[in-house]
Design a protein around this nucleic acid. Structure first.
Length: 577
RNA sequence: GCCAACUUAGCUCAGCUGGUAGAGCAGCGCAUUCGUAAUGCGCAGGUCAUCGGUUCGAUCCCGAUAGUUGGCUCCA
């Protein structure tokens, strides 16, 4: 265990010791180290809030200043039960320790805790602590259990290190897509329309269009066909697909539509789609396919709605309406290996374009309860595994972690801050083809069941956008930037020339505007920098006279004066990057 | 769904123990015509989330509802 983890875990003990000292009737559970700091779970009559932090921190600092030793004691089960009488959570945890295994406790001053350790030698080794948040947490993470009060904190060997951690957290907050989304006017979610329903504002929409254009172009190149399918479908469709049986709670409630009049009237139920699969299947069933037609690749930027439970929404990362970059591949079993490899390769190609190069795959295999015959699972899983290995992609295996209807690969990327996000998924489905009785005609003239693979590369555009915003901290590369060039005349004498430049660049499909505000050039630059526009053209009398442009880059500052053609060349290059 | 905190102008936030609200930025107007991160002056902008209660009187106290935030649970 790393030293910092030991410090964090020890700080958790000190937190518990302090809380026990400050409040009465404290029952404590456990307090581990986390990636950033530590937490401890308590059950006490007093409702903890951040207002209580100063008192608790003062007590913690006193314990640290006293430099008390962490004493490790090994005791018998009976002794431990005695020590923790009146501590139901501890007794419950004690019961988890297998018979015959040593029961160790750690003593710090008057505070004793059941703990495996290790700990620092004495409290003085914990240089600095700070409590950060209080939150509810179910005992043992089970929502049927009582909710405990969890106090979060951070700890470090020195105050300087603690300050660094605080800074890092602040930096991450500055990148928060919700904050940047507001500052750069990228998207909005309003109370009036409803929670979890995102609106892409003009600048966000420009980015989305750039993403979609690229996505479509690459898909056509890779042999996909595009579909556009309805947003609602009759209850019977969802009955057949099994969604009403399994995922009704995750769907928006039905719409009742009454057709006909009087005695002949009947009421039909419709549901808004939580998935595109049934519709793509309808498209497949629009005609008969032969083995020669396969693999068939149907793609759609399909907007779906899922009634996510309250309390799980988070900006664009978890919404109720979103557009999946979806595709379904219908493939003959003997071609599946090749097709999966092709799909994995394609996925990596797309992710690289967005600056994600650190990619890990997760292979999930057959769970206990599963549909489809075992040989198909075997073939499918092997094709996934072989594709990952052929591409030299690092992967982990989640044995039995697949959905009941098929094995899958999930792709996780690391962003600029090193945080991991799950994006794409390549998922077999042995359920739908059966339910909808999908077939193709084989070489032998007989009907065969195709393999169906569901796949998304970016996941959902909303979520992907949120991740992209944080990854680039709002400073999008030129090809994605909503505005690529801002032209800034120094005085209104250059306005005419500036407008000419704008028209020329627009004619070349660049995204460009003119800042005609009555402001000093310094103010215009500041505005453009804050809006993270990649290129600024400063246009004064000299440039207008020479028919040139003074280029400023978002990252590199003043790049000097050059002819318009030279700038266009520069811009084209930047757009490729 | 659960625990806690929060909700004041387009944005970021003030508002002492109850007497119907302020700033900066953004917006608009006027002046200024300026060379690489903020020119000055002025104007306008609010059902203090919503509903109900207590009170002579509520942005402030109490309750409910909605939403947001941090977690827990969940994520086909």
């Amino acid at each position: 265990m790393e030293k910092i983890e030991v410090i964090r875990h020890s700080a958790a003990h000190i937190l518990a010791a302090a809380v026990c000292k400050v409040y009465d009737n404290v029952k404590f559970d456990i307090g581990p180290a986390t990636d950033e700091g530590f937490y401890y779970d308590f059950d006490l009559p007093h409702r903890l809030s951040t207002d209580d932090f100063p008192a608790i921190e003062t007590e913690m600092k006193a314990i640290i200043a006293a430099n008390l030793p962490f004493e490790r004691l090994e005791v018998s089960r009976a002794e431990a039960q005695n020590m923790f009488a009146g501590q139901p959570y501890k007794l419950d945890r004690l019961a988890d320790i297998p018979e015959g295994q040593t029961v160790s406790i750690y003593k710090t001053g008057a505070y004793i805790d059941l703990c495996r350790g290790p700990h620092v030698a004495s409290t003085g080794e914990i240089g600095a602590i700070r409590l950060t948040a209080v939150a509810g947490s179910y005992y043992r993470g089970d929502e049927k259990n009582k909710m405990l009060q969890r106090v979060y904190g951070i700890a470090a060997a020195t105050q300087t290190e603690l300050d660094e951690i605080v800074n890092r957290i602040e930096e991450a907050k500055k990148r928060d897509h919700r904050r940047i989304g507001k500052e750069l006017e990228l998207f909005t979610i309003t109370d009036d329309v409803g929670p979890g329903l995102a609106h892409w504002l003009p600048k966000g929409a420009r980015i989305r269009v750039a993403i979609e254009d690229y996505w479509r172009k690459e898909h056509f190149r890779a042999g996909y066909e595009m579909l556009f399918t309805p947003h609602v479908g009759r209850a019977q469709l969802w009955q057949t697909s099994g969604h009403l049986g399994f995922y009704k709670d995750g769907m928006f409630p039905n719409m009742n539509v009454t057709e006909g009049e009087g005695d002949k009237s009947f009421t039909e139920q419709y549901y808004v789609k939580p998935m595109n699969c049934p519709f793509h299947i309808q498209a497949y069933q629009a005609r008969k396919y032969s083995y020669r037609d396969l693999p068939l690749r149907f793609a759609e930027l399909g907007t779906v709605y899922r009634y996510e439970k309250e309390g799980v929404r988070h900006g664009l990362l978890r919404v109720r309406g979103f557009t999946q970059d979806d595709a379904h591949i219908f493939c003959a079993p003997d071609k599946i290996e090749e097709e999966i490899r092709f799909t994995v390769k394609f996925c990596l190609h797309i992710l690289h374009r967005f600056g994600f190069n650190d990619i890990t795959a997760y292979l999930s295999t057959r769970p206990e309860k599963a549909v489809g015959n075992p040989e198909d699972w075997e073939t499918a899983t092997a094709s996934l595994r072989n594709a990952l290995e052929a591409e030299g992609l690092a992967y982990q295996v989640d044995e039995g972690g697949g959905a009941f209807y098929g094995p899958k690969i999930d792709m996780k990327i690391k962003d600029a801050l090193g945080r991991q996000w799950q994006l794409g998924t390549i998922q077999f489905d042995f359920n739908m083809p059966e339910r909808f009785d999908l077939t193709y005609t084989g070489e032998d003239g007989k009907e065969h069941r195709p393999y169906m693979v569901h796949r998304a590369l970016l996941g959902s555009l909303e979520r992907f956008f949120g991740i992209l915003i944080e990854h680039y901290a709002g400073a999008f590369p030129v090809w994605l930037a909503p505005l690529q060039v801002r032209i800034m005349p120094i005085t209104d004498k250059q306005l005419g020339y500036a407008k000419d430049l704008e028209a020329k660049l627009k004619a070349l499909d660049f995204r460009v505007d003119v800042d005609a505000d009555n402001e000093k050039i310094g103010a215009k630059i500041r505005k453009a920098q804050l809006q993270k526009i990649p290129f600024m053209l400063v246009i004064g009398g000299r440039e207008a006279e020479a028919g040139a442009v003074a280029v400023r880059s978002r990252e590199e500052g003043d790049k000097g004066t050059m002819p318009l053609e030279a700038f266009i060349e520069l811009l084209r290059e930047a757009q490729q990057a």
